[in-house]
């Protein structure tokens, strides 16, 4: 199998992931974009491992690492998203702007119902 097939697939997946991360408003969908990018990297790792006939199979080992890290990352990130939903009542990234450098607090992320830490109103 030529090398460029898996590379093309990985590029497509990576591009879709980047698109998702940069453009989607829903935080869960952004996380899915991140997963796509990670898996594109995994494909690259495995493809080069096979292509180079690595005796130690470093590429496959690294891919396993990446999968573990991705699992941890998605767990943490989903917890963050959950907390965001509980405090803000939405997970719209466009409206989460408290890190902006401005004089007054923008009304933008004050919208929506204020919930307590358990998610109750």
């Amino acid at each position: 199998m030529p090398l460029w097939w898996p590379l093309l697939l990985a590029s497509l997946l990576f591009a879709i992931g980047v698109y998702g991360v940069l453009v989607r408003r829903n935080a869960v969908l952004v996380l899915m974009g991140v997963e796509l990018m990670l898996n594109a990297v995994n494909i690259n790792l495995v493809a080069f491992d096979a292509h180079l006939r690595d005796v130690l199979h470093g590429g496959q080992t690294l891919a396993l690492f990446t999968i573990v890290i991705a699992a941890a990352e998605i767990g943490l990130a989903l917890a963050v998203v959950l907390l965001v939903f509980r405090t803000h009542g939405h997970i719209d990234l466009d409206r989460l702007r408290s890190l902006a450098d401005r004089d007054g607090l923008d009304e933008l992320d004050q919208r929506g119902p204020r919930l307590d830490h358990r998610g109750a109103r």
Binding site: V21, V23, V30, R97
Partner: peptide, 17 residues
């Protein structure tokens, strides 16, 4: 420079990419 600090993470990422 402050104008670029919108607080929108996706904008920052866009610039990075």
């Amino acid at each position: 420079l402050r104008l670029t600090q919108t607080g929108n993470v996706q904008t920052y990422l866009m610039v990075v990419v």
